[in-house]
Design a protein around this nucleic acid. Structure first.
Length: 487
RNA sequence: GGCCCUAUCGUCUAACGGUUUAGGACGCAGCCCUCUCAAGGCUGAAAUACGGGUUCGAUUCCCGUUAGGGCUACCA
């Protein structure tokens, strides 16, 4: 939705710090970011840590660094102060308390002294009776005097929302159109917990208003509670923001994307070697498209093209195959220099961390393997022979390419190679052709045998590229070694 | 159970009543290229859940059915 010109666009990503950044969260953050940047607005990061029991050490730092890795920059947040802080809900407790009291004064909320045990009891009763579970509103109309005396006694209590008994609430969702729900099915939701912390419902409304949020872009799981939020905005005398509920990200079985059926943490994908560009491009396409047939898009292009109108309504299965392809596409768009630096990073964590490899050599490996890898680690995994001699020979390839006469042929080839001075690809090729001709065999017979001998494998770049890369001495050494081991 | 949302190839999606023999992409299969494997090029199989309306005309609008999903906490 194109925002009205008078309202500056301000959106937020509001995760709770429960450990890691979920890919669904990444997409939500991304859409918020794209929407904000597209409209020259602000994108903020707000930490929703109102559940004491779910606090996870280091989660906030992790969230921030993962968002940073993905390239999603926020304008205001815990470490980027703006005019609307603090950006952590646990530091805004008095704000929520004051607004809860205001709601009570206006008759829009009430104190509730029911014990968790009693609540549990009525829920159980409702379930066995197959009735909808909801609070029985026991404390909704407690006499004022009784409330005051219970409060004075320090009785444990919560503050509940006083939902209208009838009528209906509706709101316009940018993605879903008008959503309407009858008040009679709305529960008298807890707003302020007995520990003094707000629930999500109170905190989100207070913060979105105070932080001047113009558009709430969040997951579809929030759709059912949005009417309560709308009621709260109204009760507080505020104008609700524009809502946009994003379709869910799904497991292959179409249930809400979860651990158990694959990786859901952005950190996992990062650790597996996915490029930020690929992951961002991929999640952007889960529920949105640019309207033409482009698939490979940079973050800047996404900013330029993004609009909420083009966000779909139905859930999207997280399809790793396509992500892999996007990784391949983004990797091949990187310059040799960039790939070199990534390869060096990878190498430093690998078994070759202490092997000396100069830039010129690695650059040659990169250009030989570029079309054959989707991940940086595959430069090593798919062609380990560029980093060390073969440790074995693929049995199925041996069976196919190593004939009884091969040893003899290769011995002749060694002789031919030995006479070469500083050979280039062409010289290797000519030498091999000479040997093949002299031995009355096809070039192919030698080519495949040599490939097997020097690499241990049956697949890879052109043979002469491999030989040139390895150099004459190493080539001869490996061929000799293969003759020794395979004869 | 109640409420809400959703429904085009296996998957991600295009189509905003007619220009559609329903387009693209991933994946899959085949062919070409070729020393192998890739890359690249070409080709192919593959979808509007079902039933009613509305309309001269429905993938597109409405209703129902079915299916899937979400929510239903002093969690977010």
């Amino acid at each position: 939705m194109t925002p009205s010109t008078s309202q500056p666009v301000r959106v937020r990503f509001a995760p709770s710090p429960t450990g890691y950044l979920h890919v669904g969260g990444l997409r939500t953050a991304l859409y918020n970011y794209l929407f904000a940047k597209h409209h020259n607005g602000k994108f903020l990061l707000r930490i929703e840590d109102t559940d004491q029991s779910r606090k996870v050490e280091g989660a906030v730092e992790n969230l921030i660094s993962t968002l940073g890795w993905a390239g999603i920059q926020y304008d205001e947040g815990i470490d980027r102060p703006g005019a609307f802080g603090p950006y952590v809900q646990s530091e805004r407790l008095d704000l929520y308390r004051r607004h809860a009291e205001q709601l009570i004064e206006r008759g829009k909320a009430y104190y509730c002294f029911c014990s968790p045990e009693r609540l549990e009891e009525i829920r159980k009763r409702q379930m066995t009776a197959k009735l909808p579970t909801s609070y029985d509103r026991h404390c909704r109309n407690l006499p004022k005097a009784q409330v005051e005396s219970l409060l004075a006694k320090g009785e444990s209590h919560v503050v509940r929302m006083k939902v209208p008994l009838e009528g209906e609430v509706s709101f316009d969702d940018v993605i879903r159109g008008t959503v309407t729900i009858g008040c009679e099915v709305l529960d008298d939701q807890v707003l302020l917990k007995s520990d003094g912390f707000p629930t999500y419902h109170l905190a989100v409304v207070v913060d979105d208003h105070l932080m001047k949020i113009s558009h709430v872009i969040r997951g579809e799981e929030w759709l059912p509670s949005t009417p309560k939020h709308v009621l709260l905005f109204r009760a507080l005398g505020w104008e609700p923001p524009v809502f946009a509920h994003l379709p869910l990200l799904l497991n292959p079985d179409k249930s809400k994307l979860s651990k158990r059926q694959g990786d859901v943490a952005v950190e996992e994908y990062r650790a597996k070697g996915y490029l930020r560009e690929a992951l961002v491009n991929f999640v952007a396409l889960l529920g949105w498209n640019p309207g033409d047939e482009r698939e490979i898009l940079s973050l800047d292009e996404l900013v330029g093209e993004f609009s909420l109108e083009r966000v779909g309504k139905s859930g999207a299965v997280f399809n790793v195959e396509k992500l892999n392809w996007l990784n391949f596409e983004h990797l091949r768009r990187k310059s040799d220099k960039e790939v070199l630096s990534m390869l060096r990073d990878y190498l430093s964590t690998s078994e070759f961390s202490s092997t000396h490899l100069d830039d010129a050599y690695l650059l040659k490996v990169i250009s030989a393997m570029r079309d054959r890898v989707s991940f940086v680690r595959e430069f090593v995994e798919n062609s380990p022979y560029f980093f060390r001699p073969p440790r074995g020979y693929d049995p199925t390839v041996v069976k196919k390419r190593w004939k009884p006469e091969t040893s003899e042929l290769l011995s002749r080839l060694i002789g031919e190679f030995s006479r070469l001075e500083n050979p280039g690809k062409e010289e290797y090729e000519a030498a091999l052709h000479r040997t093949a001709e002299a031995s009355q065999v096809g070039n192919g017979q030698l080519i495949h045998a040599v490939r097997l001998a020097v690499s241990g494998m049956g697949a890879g770049p052109g043979l002469y590229d491999i030989l040139f890369l390895l150099g004459r001495e190493e080539t001869i050494r490996r061929i000799a070694m293969a003759i020794e081991k395979l004869k």
